Amino acid sequence: MDSPGHSAQYCNYTLMENDTKDLLCSIIIDKRMTDLKSTNMEKEGLIRGLRTLRENRVVVKELVTDASTTIAAMMMYFTYLNCRLHRCFCKRSGTYSWYKEKVPKTYTYVEQLLQDILHSVATRIEPLRAPVTLTPTDPRKIKRSISGITPPPTKFLMASKKSRIDEK
């Protein structure tokens, strides 16, 4: 691709299927195709690659890419084309802005989750307050504390605590 201080002449943009790792399309973009702007080559490669997939009737359900800001901005634009947008006026700046309509959440899984919890509690043989046995791979068996030093005894901590009230 392109990096600061370098001027890329070509960009190879490859699209692949994630599960099978099959290459679906490979596009080579020349800087001259993007008005001699090497920063636009990646975006142009993606656009041409998606167009090629669409022409070959390949359905794209998910797109995973690197942290390119031009690709992220382009995908944000396409995402907002497929939803309802609203505008609002900002008194402070005196300009209009827009926001995406929020879709209400349904939480369809909560009822099944509660049923599973109640079933687990009802069919449990040992009492709920029974001690928990740790599995051999439990991280608490490796190290009891995330601190890099051994903690001092609680009595020592209580004795060394200074109160702001007692200072007067």
Rank of each mutant, 00 (worst) to 15 (best):
M74G: 06
N56M: 04
E55Y: 07
S7C: 10
S147C: 06
L113V: 10
L118E: 10
I29E: 05
L50Q: 02
I47A: 06
I142V: 14
Y96V: 00
A8V: 03
P151L: 10
S163N: 09
L128K: 00
R140N: 08
V58R: 00
Y77G: 05
M33P: 03
L114D: 07
G94A: 07
T95E: 15
H6F: 12
K168R: 15
I125N: 07
L53W: 00
S145G: 02
Q9M: 06
K162D: 07
C90P: 01
E55H: 12
Q112F: 08
E62C: 08
K168M: 10
V103F: 04
S147Q: 11
F78H: 11
K141F: 02
S147A: 10
I125L: 07
S160H: 09
T137A: 08
P104H: 03
L114K: 09
T123L: 06
K168A: 12
I47L: 13
M41D: 05
M33Y: 12
I165S: 14
A130M: 13
S38I: 03
S26M: 12
A67T: 12
I27Q: 03
N56V: 02
F78E: 15
H86M: 01
I29T: 13
E44Q: 14
N40S: 11
C25V: 04
M75A: 03
P151I: 04
P136M: 02
T20M: 00
S147L: 13
L114V: 09
G5K: 01
S38C: 11
L118R: 12
R87D: 07
D166S: 15
E101Y: 01
I71L: 13
V103G: 01
L63R: 02
S163Y: 07
I142L: 12
I47H: 06
S7T: 08
A159I: 10
S93C: 15
K37E: 10
H6D: 11
Q9H: 10
M74C: 06
R164V: 07
R54C: 06
P152S: 11
D138E: 05
A130K: 14
K141Q: 11
T106A: 09
A8M: 03
R87M: 13
I165C: 09
K91R: 10
P151R: 09
I142R: 15
V110R: 11
D35W: 05
T79V: 03
C25G: 00
Y109V: 13
R57P: 04
V60G: 01
C11S: 14
P127I: 05
L50T: 00
E126I: 09
V103M: 05
Q9S: 10
N12L: 14
G45K: 09
C83A: 01
A73P: 01
V58Q: 02
Q115T: 04
L46Q: 05
S97V: 04
R51I: 06
P153R: 09
L53M: 03
D166I: 15
V60L: 02
Y109W: 15
Q115S: 12
K161L: 15
C11P: 06
R124W: 01
S145L: 04
K37N: 14
K162V: 14
L36E: 15
C83I: 06
S93L: 02
K102L: 11
Y10D: 07
